[in-house]
Design a protein around this nucleic acid. Structure first.
Lengths: 346, 346
DNA sequence: ATCTCCGTGGAAAGCGCTTTCCAACACGCT
DNA sequence: AGCGTGTTGGAAAGCGCTTTCCACGGAGAT
């Protein structure tokens, strides 16, 4: 069953040239080879069905064609959009994408970087927010240092906390603008589905939102801030707490879209209409949003583009200092938000 | 900057043992090594920060730890769900997933299998429907043969046309049951957004749907079958044709969910209400569906599970004949379908 | 006391490729 | 004719690891 593979040596022998010449012809070398030999080698390679052994090449060159992509959950539209951007650029550059998923486990994150390091991956894109866990951060930073010391390039999509090139979305200012936009609609009592307290992206968005409210002279009582998972189900579950809290809020901000979607479903189940009874807004503008009814107000982030940018950072020539690419967020008010009805979450 | 990596030889020397012994200790060998030496090797490996070079291992062992995953578009929820299943199983087995995207280009598909072959990937999951293009099919089949001849295992998710292990969803019978369910609601005039004519999955679903209608003595005029892209935008665009065709249909079946979502949006834009004016159903039950309003009726496929199964097929012990795992589809009627209003698509 | 058998360590031969280094040769000069 | 110069081909030394094969020594059997 398992048939032996054609090797370069066989091609060389068959073509009557040396191993060196065959290698030079078949794999991009700067060295000149006469037209005659070149043709002969190319011909027999094709005839024999020669396929270079990527492991052998990686070993000899001490560098592979692999690009790592680390995400928390590839089924989450946020990450799959970023992944689409990263793969597009990487594949266009002739590279091969290795996908690793962490399930939000920081140890797994470290493990993945380690694996990529073992494979001599040439570059690495890490998507997903940092947390407040200092020791996890430190371990990851160590692993990243080792990776770059090997000659690998690393870029992150999130917060620039790891000393790498980073694409950072405008979480704070985006949320701040959103808050102002919502206040402009007439809302005065807000609640926030804030996600997990240790997730920096969640904290930043909450902080930005608070700042935006403060700009308008509105306060956000702590009781109106509900923590939960950073997922659709987290948003769904948080609504029970939210309703129980009797905040009187007329507008709910969920720190990301999938949470907002879960929240909208839960609100409906509680017999509350969006936006008539309560307005809802999210953050990210994941692609599936445009088919929601009512369409969800949010802060648009160019997710695929962010993936592309991260990939480009990592494929560029090496530069001295870590670069930070800031990506603006655009407030998009859609049907899920309207002027307050006066009812709210009693 | 680029620091040299610690090699096995250095560990061996430092620990005062032979290369062979160090290798045996550090990388799962069946050979016994005395407790004393084992400890010594393990200790110095840790002290030196030894990390095996995966390329070297792959070369020496003539087999890697890579598993290929080929999808059309990772941002499509259908594929990202399958991808989540595949990665879960592969990573649990200690393997590394290589993600390749084709953008529905058959040449790219072949190219990707070729690349994976060059990397001596141990297994390969190809997701995505086959088409009626015989020559593309043949080239892919050749590449797959070469891959398996090398000792690699391949599984597909779609139609069992490639002589590989395959996870095949019940496209025909699912669509047939759906048609009957819709007829049971009272519908008699249907239209189908049929996707591209050369996509087997689209054809199968259309055929199944027709068969189900025939069971109920209902005919589907060719004029009521609209072809378009297999995407959200394809579904959206098809609605213009659909409306122009003045089919009088009271129920529209889109051969997949993303098309149905696009269609629902387009219908709304045409001032048509779902389901009051026209019922809509899809196929797949992608995760985002549950947050649509009205919730979309569909045929549920266990997408992540299908990915898991494909991964398991490919990681199992080798068996003689190609296996086919059939996955049933479950008709789920939700709010997007209701008894016909009598109006329909005039 | 001798022989066999087994458990354990090491030497060395690859795995398939890249790349350095050298040799050979053809030029164009002086 | 003699000499650099530039171009092209090949020999061979790795890249870091696995694994075969052999050697050695002690344990048990005779």
């Amino acid at each position: 069953m398992t048939s032996r593979q054609v090797t370069l040596a066989e091609v060389a022998k068959e073509a009557g040239v040396s191993l060196a010449t065959a290698s030079r012809v078949l794999n991009g070398s700067t060295r000149q080879v006469s037209e005659e030999l070149r043709e002969r080698v190319l011909g027999t390679a094709r005839a024999l069905g020669y396929l270079p052994n990527a492991s052998a090449q990686a070993l000899a060159r001490n560098s592979s064609v692999l690009v790592g992509l680390v995400v928390h959950d590839i089924a989450d539209p946020y990450f799959s959009s970023i992944a689409a951007g990263v793969t597009r650029i990487a594949e266009a550059a002739g590279l091969v994408v290795v996908l690793g998923t962490t399930g939000r486990d920081p140890r797994r994150e470290v493990e993945l970087v380690n694996t990529l390091r073992a494979h001599r991956a040439r570059a690495l894109v890490i998507a997903g927010s940092r947390t407040t866990d200092r020791s996890a951060s430190r371990r990851l930073a160590e692993e990243i240092t080792a990776f770059t010391a090997q000659g690998g390039r690393v870029a992150c999509v999130s917060q620039a906390k790891l000393g790498t090139d980073t694409v950072v979305p405008a979480n704070r200012s985006g949320a701040r603008s959103l808050a102002r936009g919502l206040a402009a609609l007439g809302h005065r009592r807000f609640a926030v589905l804030a996600g997990p307290p240790d997730l920096l992206v969640a904290r930043d968005r909450l902080a930005g939102f608070k700042a935006g409210l403060a700009d308008e002279g509105i306060e956000l009582p702590d009781a109106n801030v509900i923590t939960s998972g950073f997922t659709r189900d987290g948003g769904h579950a948080a609504v029970a707490d939210l309703v129980a809290a009797r905040t009187g809020a007329t507008c709910v901000f969920a720190v990301n879209d999938v949470m907002a979607m879960g929240a909208m479903a839960a609100l409906r189940e509680h017999g509350l209409r969006v936006p008539e009874d309560v307005s809802v807004a999210g953050f990210d503008d994941i692609p599936t949003l445009r088919d929601l009814v009512p369409a969800l107000s949010t802060v648009r982030l160019p997710l695929e583009d962010m993936g592309e940018r991260a990939a480009r950072l990592v494929l560029d020539d090496v530069v001295a200092a870590p670069r930070t690419v800031r990506v603006a967020g655009e407030v998009v008010l859609r049907a899920s938000t309207s002027p307050p009805s006066g009812i709210g979450l009693r």
